[in-house]
Design a protein around this nucleic acid. Structure first.
Lengths: 187, 187
DNA sequence: CTGTTTTTGTGACCTAGATCACTAGTGTTG
DNA sequence: CAACACTAGTGATCTAGGTCACAAAAACAG
């Protein structure tokens, strides 16, 4: 039971059965259907989510109601609006299920308690946070330096599996190009 | 002595004199002149840098030799190519001093030892990493959703002090706009 | 303080990508 | 399986921002 989460932790730190069982007490589980929102603009973001199966998008709608996708998140990824989560405040994003999705979620309090009571977890969170930070910097650079075409090719290379699961419209909103331009890239 | 660094730590965690003295043993100090490179493309990035005074830019040159600025870093900021640092590998960036700059720097080994031997430091690093991650996400969103003009205004609001210290050319390279377009924004 | 380099503003042009509009396919769901 | 709503391709514009080129003004170094 709970293999996905345990394996995920154990990619970074070793845990005894007791330790993992303890960690688990800080999490709850929930299933969402395709199209469900985990949170929406103006919600207080109380949790961070570990996706054990399924696919989410974290997106933002600008003043012209145009959608921009901040990130996709699939199995073994963490997702939330981490800014709103850490400050327990309202988000400006939407977190929506692109497929039926199962998550483990934890509150900020749980996150803090877990970090204090099982200090190894700090190592784990630190690792994840660093990876996330480095990944965002890569994306910034990619937005600054590359053309839509190059970005699309990078995307295909980096997330080949997503290509099957996500519509081109969504990919365009992630890459920062219009749907039409994306369509014309490979013709 | 070493007030900047100590205050910086103590914004997040409390340290005894002994603890701070211990932490300090993991750092070295160095001064750079204006125009000096702290590291350049193809260097192995062995250290992370805390800036006690001065101003740096972390930048990347694309295939057309056009410069893109990933970040500016000033007093009380940490800077490095964290990807290359954590993996102790060659960077594709340049880290250059825009002003004479003094830094405290630490090796990856030092970072790990410090985290293990003074576990509070993990809390500190985790805080910094989270903040960095959240900041990068904001920048991504800003690149995806806003016009050069809006980005420039955001920049002025967010870093008013930098406006005095950095040329417009550099700001343009940070915002992802051409120098000329930036110049025309406010005319 | 003087020559050299860097920065800034501006004009003239050009092009990548946005937008709008329509058609045909492909799901999804009741 | 029928109806409706998304998704994808493609043509016809339009335009923000890039590029090139020059000149004035600062900043800097010897």
């Amino acid at each position: 039971m709970h293999k996905t989460l345990r394996n995920h932790f154990e990619e970074v730190i070793d845990l005894t059965d007791q330790e993992f069982a303890f960690a688990l007490t800080k999490f709850e589980i929930k299933d969402f259907g395709k199209g469900d929102f985990i949170f929406q603009r103006d919600d207080i973001v109380e949790h961070a989510y570990f996706i054990s199966s399924g696919l989410l998008k974290l997106s933002y709608f600008d003043d012209n109601a145009k959608e921009h996708i901040v990130s996709f998140a699939m199995e073994n990824w963490w997702e939330s609006d981490f800014n709103a989560f850490f400050t327990q405040s309202e988000t400006t994003y939407y977190l929506k299920c692109l497929e039926a999705t199962s998550v483990y979620y934890i509150s900020l309090e749980g996150y803090r308690e877990l970090s204090e009571e099982l200090p190894k977890m700090k190592t784990f969170w630190l690792q994840k946070s660093n990876t996330g930070f480095v990944g965002s910097q890569r994306r910034i650079l990619s937005l600054l330096t590359t053309s839509p075409k190059e970005r699309y090719e990078q995307f295909l290379k980096e997330y080949p599996s997503l290509t099957q699961r996500v519509s081109k419209t969504q990919i365009a909103a992630y890459l920062g190009v219009s749907r039409e331009t994306l369509s014309r890239l490979y013709s």
